[in-house]
């Protein structure tokens, strides 16, 4: 793609999967392109629309159980879009969005329903809701530490040959582990799809991940951006003092507020 052409960012179903402010990821990608002189456009695709299938990037956010099932049905009905996610676009899928792209999901009552089968993962509800800060080491070279907030009950098992996005240092992530060292995994990373449990603009906290996506989409090297407060924000969430404090908060929250569906 040349520097002149507009990069379109498709925000999928923000009316259904908008619970955790994930729409901010679209703003972040678009602004980081514009600041580098590359025109960008956000296309909002609601459940009432016939989806555009030519976007360079698609974003799928998080949502509650009923919303997730509705979104999965909707995506399955739009096969052209599914093909775009499979063959032409780069997708960032967060939380419920990640689960939808897998083979299957089951809800709290044990009912199974199919996903889009774009990722070799399956998700079942865990015993407890995972709520709190996550720090993970990204498996993608050059991205470093990932920071984000998780709030989910899904336990996601990766199929053989499916790579995680990160190794969990604190928090829960996928809730499963792998490898000979049994490290705990966070998210999924494939050629076209980045899936994560880190919600609420994961890209605001991890600009290197945003630029990885943009590099993939444009083929261009993304020069560094000096965004005010960005370093302070990462320091807040990655510093040791914060870690100690938050880790207590994490356990406390889980114990006290685990009555979610």
């Amino acid at each position: 793609m040349s520097g002149e052409s507009t990069v379109t960012i498709g925000l999928l179903l923000p009316d259904v999967l908008g619970t955790y402010s994930d729409a901010g990821n679209a703003t972040i990608l678009a602004q980081r392109l514009r600041w580098r002189g590359i025109p960008a456009e956000i296309r909002t695709i609601t459940a009432c629309d016939v989806p555009v299938t030519t976007c360079a990037v698609y974003l799928l956010g998080g949502g509650e159980d009923t919303a997730q099932q509705f979104a999965a049905d909707w995506l399955r009905r739009h096969d052209q879009l599914r093909r775009a996610l499979e063959t032409s676009a780069v997708t960032l899928a967060v939380c419920a969005g990640l689960q939808i792209l897998g083979r299957s999901m089951s809800d709290a009552s044990g009912h199974h329903y199919p996903g889009l089968d774009l990722l070799d993962i399956t998700t079942a509800p865990g015993r407890q809701r995972a709520v709190g800060e996550v720090i993970a080491t990204c498996t993608v070279p050059g991205i470093g530490s990932l920071t984000g907030f998780e709030n989910h009950r899904g336990v996601t098992t990766l199929g053989p040959g499916t790579a995680p996005l990160g190794r969990v240092i604190t928090g829960t992530g996928n809730g499963t582990s792998e490898g000979t060292t049994r490290y705990r995994t966070e998210g999924v990373f494939t050629d076209r799809i980045i899936g994560t449990y880190l919600h609420g603009p994961v890209l605001a906290r991890n600009p290197a991940l945003a630029d990885h996506i943009l590099h993939k989409v444009t083929g261009q090297v993304m020069p560094a951006l000096d965004l005010p407060d960005q370093a302070a924000l990462r320091h807040t969430y990655l510093s040791h003092t914060y870690l100690g404090r938050n880790y207590l908060g994490h356990t406390y929250l889980q114990g006290r507020f685990s009555r979610c569906s």
Partner: peptide, 19 residues
Amino acid sequence: ERAADLGVRLSYAGLEHQT
């Protein structure tokens, strides 16, 4: 206490600000 989170958000909203 979360001035940096807010500051980053404001920057992406295109708002010049001090932190």
